[in-house]
């Protein structure tokens, strides 16, 4: 028994993917299709990772307006990039091996996440303090980032600027496969925990009463979230904030917070928005900006509409 709304979303996602692959095909078909398929896979991988991590993060923090980017992950990523540029110089950075960059990115993000999350196990930090620490660290990294940006050589700065937005255009195929594999493992774990997440959403006391080991579950979920976010951030750049839009839309569509419904719905909507958006952007807007900017703009408008409708009820 599969929900009808999920089937419609799946069909829409498939339409977007096909449109993305086939619209305006020209030249060497084999070459173009491979290029597009790689990009499509990256869009799908990142979209699903962001959507699912946001659902889990919102459930564990019991807050529906948060995204994992509040833990300072995006900010650290940007800071690590600019630090590398400062140390190596723009040219050396730009020619640096992609897998090395990927590895450095993931390592930095996972270390930050563990430093933030693991003290919760011993009861040294609770959720509120952990989030606050994340926000403060995020501000710190952002300030350091702008400090370095000021003293950077303009050519190097241009390199940094290019890395500061979500970028699906030059994704390394080998890394994509690795990232997808890691994401897939995390997704399997999240999916298996979907009923546990439903119980977690009931709140601490009710969840403990039903036999959930609260602290361990929270920490486990947060670690899964940070794997998902770290992998996609290291792959394409800071994109975690997009999750808010995907999850809010998914909730509108399925009218439920049940994870068995919400997780696939959010993932499918992420694919529709990212792939559909990218298609539109390439063919209708003539590639004039980056997809991230467009989605942020559209997302902002969607949120204003949601707020406006909510306030009238």
């Amino acid at each position: 028994m599969i929900d009808r709304r999920l089937i419609i979303l799946t069909l829409l996602a498939a339409v977007c993917a096909i449109a993305f692959l086939t619209l305006g095909l020209r030249g060497n078909l084999g070459f173009v299709l491979t290029l597009r398929a790689t990009k499509l896979a990256a869009l799908i991988e990142v979209g699903i990772a962001i959507a699912v991590s946001t659902v889990v993060f919102q459930t564990v923090t019991a807050n529906r307006i948060l995204t994992p980017s509040i833990m300072g992950i995006d900010a650290l990523y940007l800071f690590a990039q600019i630090l590398l540029v400062l140390i190596l110089g723009g040219l050396a950075y730009a020619t640096l091996d992609a897998s090395l960059k990927f590895a450095i990115g993931i390592a930095a993000l996972m270390i930050l996440s563990c430093v933030l999350i693991l003290p919760m196990l011993r009861g040294r930090l609770d959720m509120g303090l952990m989030l606050l620490a994340g926000v403060v660290l995020g501000v710190l990294f952002r300030s350091l980032h702008s400090l370095i940006a000021r003293i950077l050589d303009p050519n190097d700065f241009a390199v940094v600027q290019g890395m500061s937005y979500v970028n699906f255009n030059d994704v390394n195929t080998g890394l994509l496969a690795l990232a997808s594999l890691m994401t897939l493992c995390a997704l399997v774990l999240v999916w298996r925990a979907r009923h546990i997440l439903d119980v977690v959403a009931l709140g601490r006391d009710a969840a403990i009463g039903l036999g959930i080991d609260w602290t361990k579950t929270q920490v486990g979920c947060l670690l899964l979230v940070s794997v998902l976010v770290a992998v996609s951030t290291a792959l394409v750049g800071p994109a975690a904030f997009l999750g808010l839009l995907f999850v809010a839309l998914a909730e509108r569509v399925v009218q439920s917070r049940r994870h068995a419904l919400l997780i696939p719905a959010a993932a499918l909507i992420a694919v529709i928005v990212l792939v559909g958006g990218q298609t539109l952007f390439q063919h209708a807007l003539g590639n004039s900006s980056t997809l991230g900017v467009v989605i942020e703009f559209a997302g902002g408008i969607v949120f204003l509409i949601l707020l406006w409708r909510g306030s009238r009820r």
Binding site: R64, A201, L202, G203, D205, G209, L210, G211, R257
Partner: peptide
């Protein structure tokens, strides 16, 4: 959880 059930005073049930 199979041995005892607990109902507390204040329950914040956020989800739909």
């Amino acid at each position: 959880a199979k041995k005892m059930a607990i109902l507390r005073q204040d329950n914040h049930l956020g989800s739909r």
